[in-house]
């Protein structure tokens, strides 16, 4: 979706503010949100792409004004409601009003912690060979789905070069909506800063994105 989360190239957000000796969490509730997201993701089977889409779907004004872990909290509540694991009446009441569903992997317990501390593998074998090879000129397609995508707006319609072939991976655009893993070849595509931002841009800048094959077409 063309949401406010797709921030690459936007102006007006100001300087990067670095906090010296930043703590891991600023408030204890932030750590609880992070842990709940990890735990429910792991045992309720919320995949990373649907979790991202739930955060991207936060209304733009809220997205821009909420802190990072507030966004995670709002996204988690939405995912729990959408999956009918928690009711809106329970969120309002602040406690459980009926017994819970059975999670695909059961309750999240201490024995499950080690599993969430290592990232899963997103590699999946596909039967077809990659359509592009190193050095190929490709154009990022002009795609504007209202659903989840990982093709940022700032590269759409621009021509870049295939620099790496990263194997075949779960395709977020379908996985986010539980339409299957639908694995696709994944490429690192590099663009010159001037191709993206015009002749006034810094000529020494190159920018790459990792793009799935359906995002790309042969450059004309």
């Amino acid at each position: 979706m063309n949401g406010v989360h797709d921030m690459g190239g936007m102006d007006g957000f100001g300087k990067v503010e670095v906090e010296p000796n930043e703590p891991t969490f600023h408030e204890p509730w932030e750590s609880r949100v992070m842990a709940m997201v990890r735990a429910m993701g792991a045992n309720a089977g919320f995949n990373i792409d649907m979790q991202r889409f739930s955060r991207e779907s936060i209304p733009p004004a809220t997205y821009l004004s909420a802190s990072y872990y507030q966004k995670w909290f709002l996204g988690l509540v939405k995912t729990l409601l959408d999956n009918k694991l928690v009711g809106a009446d329970e969120i309002a009441a602040g406690h459980s009003l009926r017994s819970g569903a059975t999670l695909p992997r059961g309750p999240f317990e201490k024995k499950d912690v080690v599993r969430v501390m290592t990232r899963g593998s997103f590699h999946r074998d596909v039967a077809n060979p990659p359509n592009f090879k190193l050095g190929d000129k490709v154009c990022a397609r002009n795609l504007n789905p209202t659903t989840h995508t990982r093709l940022p707006r700032y590269v759409r319609g621009h021509v870049g070069t295939i620099e790496r072939i990263n194997g075949s991976h779960v395709f977020p655009d379908t996985q986010a909506h539980l339409r299957g893993e639908n694995p696709q070849w994944l490429y690192t595509v590099v663009f010159s800063g001037r191709d993206l931002w015009g002749d006034d841009a810094d000529p020494t800048v190159k920018v790459s994105v990792d793009a799935f094959e359906p995002y790309l077409e042969v450059a004309q």
């Binding site: 969490f25 750590s31 609880r32 992070m34 842990a35 709940m36 990890r38 735990a39 429910m40 045992n43 309720a44 909290f73 988690l76 509540v77 694991l85 928690v86 329970e90 969120i91 602040g94 406690h95 459980s96 017994s99 819970g100 569903a101 999670l103 309750p107 999240f108 317990e109 201490k110 499950d112 912690v113 969430v116 501390m117």
Partner: peptide, 21 residues
């Protein structure tokens, strides 16, 4: 409140959340 709900429903053990943190 959300942690209470998830705990009461038997989805998470708060001690396991402590371990992640």
């Amino acid at each position: 409140a959300l942690e209470t709900i998830l705990t009461e429903k038997g989805y998470v053990d708060p001690a396991a959340l402590d371990a992640i943190v």
